[in-house]
C-alpha cells in the first residue's frame, strides 16, 4: 500500500529528467523492480495510472522489469538466484561450500531505468 508514495517520488524524478532534456512529452517509463523491494507490481501500476494524469507523462506507458533476488557467497564467490520471492526451500547457506556468509546482491532495489521522450 506504500506504492503511491513511491510513485510520487518517481514522478519527481521523471519531471526533473524531462525538464532537463527539454522533453515535451514522456511516452514510456521503464522501472526495474527488485522482487524483494516490497513493491507489488499491480498496485504500482494502478498508482502510476492515477498519478500520471495531468503530468508530462499523461500518455505514457509503464514498463516494469522484475529483478530476481540474488545472493553471493563471500567465501567462495558463488552466486545464487532465489527462484521465486524467497521460495520455501531457500536457506541462507551456500550450496557450493556450505558457508553462511552470504550477502544480498540484487533484488532489493527500485530504479527508474529509462524514459522515452518526445522533444
Amino acid at each position: 500500500m506504500h506504492e503511491l508514495s513511491l510513485v510520487a517520488d518517481l514522478f519527481t524524478i521523471i519531471e526533473e529528467q524531462a525538464r532537463q532534456a527539454g522533453a515535451k512529452k514522456v511516452t514510456k517509463v521503464s522501472v526495474s523492480v527488485g522482487e524483494l523491494s516490497g513493491v507489488v507490481p499491480d498496485l504500482f501500476r494502478s498508482a502510476f495510472q492515477s498519478y500520471k494524469k495531468g503530468t508530462i507523462a499523461d500518455k505514457s506507458r509503464l514498463q516494469l522489469k522484475m529483478v530476481k533476488i540474488k545472493f553471493k557467497c563471500r567465501s567462495c564467490g558463488r552466486e545464487i538466484t532465489a527462484r521465486n520471492i524467497m521460495d520455501e526451500s531457500f536457506s541462507y547457506v551456500c550450496p557450493a561450500c556450505g558457508s553462511r556468509d552470504m550477502e544480498l546482491v540484487a533484488g532489493r532495489d527500485l530504479y527508474l531505468e529509462k524514459l522515452e521522450i518526445e522533444t
Partner: peptide, 18 residues
C-alpha cells in the same frame, strides 16, 4: 516533426528517502 528519444536515467526511486 516530433523526435522520439530514449533517456537512460538509472535513478533510485527511494533515493530521496535514502
Amino acid at each position: 516533426e516530433q523526435k522520439k528519444k530514449e533517456l537512460l536515467v538509472l535513478e533510485d526511486i527511494l533515493g530521496s528517502n535514502k
